[in-house]
């Protein structure tokens, strides 16, 4: 009994020390966490198959129960989508014209890896998932994760065969976004519920439910323009966003292997009127290196999004 008391005391002291270290230096246990998830990922993969099948079956039953409500919602959504489709065609035509006029280089296609969710955190105070793709598939920390509806979260830890996703609904998630139309900047944060919070909103004048929320690309981790959700309304002075993703039953996701452009080439002043993107030999150009943000849980930085945009050189002389 005395041995039990001593070991209990030691266990509690060590646990408290772990908590303090983890709080002070969040990355200290990251390797151990990912090694554990990686080691168990084959087990997760085998066991999660039947679990997912049962979960899908239960979700189907839930769906049948809500079929009338769902039907009405879909009709309304369809009407909105038809209007949005016409608008999107118009915007696409305009965008093509502007692109041709400005000679803007089209972004390289973002590669991705598709993974299956094999585990979640199983707890009530975190919103994370484990997927069965990792370093060996080119997955790295900070990469954005999307499903068919838009942004789901981002990678916060990787092992050889698995990676952990911090969902946008997690308490620690912060994503810089625009609210469209109007291009209002805001930070989208999670609070462990399914409704996201729009914080630091530039202006809510004329903001209406139904407006779309998309990523800005600030920070260089998440590509710009990825839909995150729809403005749902205001609650207690905070605008809420409803994601189109069903976080209750995510199964397959895509991890975007997005590389933030790190080198911006500035043409020599002897070439007035030339735009960025035109081939310039390294010897003629000055290269500025902008390191991408690498820290997790970092709030949006105040840098202007214009840092990503190539500017024509000012005419000199």
């Amino acid at each position: 009994m005395i041995t039990h008391r001593v070991s209990l005391f030691v266990a509690v002291v060590i646990a408290c020390a772990f908590l303090l270290f983890d709080r002070a230096e969040a990355t200290i246990f990251e390797r151990a966490r990912q090694a554990a998830a990686d080691a168990l990922s084959p087990v997760f993969e085998v066991v999660s198959g039947p679990v997912s099948a049962v979960r899908d079956f239960l979700a189907d039953i839930q769906g049948y129960l809500a079929v009338h409500e769902e039907n009405a919602r879909l009709r309304m959504e369809n009407a909105e989508l038809l209007a949005a489709q016409a608008q999107a065609r118009d915007l696409r035509r305009r965008n093509e014209r502007f692109a041709a006029l400005l000679n803007v280089q089209v972004d390289p296609t973002i590669e991705y890896a598709t993974g299956r969710v094999v585990a979640d955190d199983g707890g009530p105070f975190r919103r994370t998932l484990v997927v069965n793709v990792g370093n060996n598939d080119g997955i790295g920390r900070g990469q954005a994760v999307v499903d068919e509806h838009g942004l789901v979260g981002r990678i916060v830890g990787t092992g050889g065969h698995s990676a952990r996703i911090l969902l946008v609904t997690d308490l620690n998630s912060r994503v810089p976004v625009y609210v469209e139309p109007g291009r209002r900047r805001a930070i989208l944060s999670g609070d462990n519920s399914d409704m996201l919070r729009l914080e630091y909103l530039e202006s809510d004048d004329g903001l209406l439910p139904g407006y779309e929320v998309v990523t800005t690309g600030e920070g260089g981790l998440i590509p710009p323009g990825i839909p995150v959700g729809i403005v749902a309304g205001e609650l207690n002075g905070i605008w809420r966003v409803r994601s189109q993703t069903s976080f209750d039953s995510i199964d397959f996701v895509r991890v975007l292997r997005f590389d933030f452009p790190q080198q911006i080439e500035i043409p020599p002043p002897s070439l007035p009127g030339q735009f960025i993107g035109v081939e310039v030999t390294p010897s003629d150009s000055e290269i500025i290196t902008t390191p991408p943000a690498t820290t997790d849980d970092e709030p949006a930085r105040n840098e202007s999004d214009d840092t990503n945009v190539a500017q024509p050189p000012s005419e000199e002389g």
Binding site: V12, F18, D22, A37
Partner: peptide
Amino acid sequence: MTPLGIFAIGLTQDLITGGPIGLWILVYE
């Protein structure tokens, strides 16, 4: 089911859930 066994259980859960290390140890102890 000893405190050391429970320590191992809590630590395992802390590691594979990606949460704060030590939390589940304290809860289970």
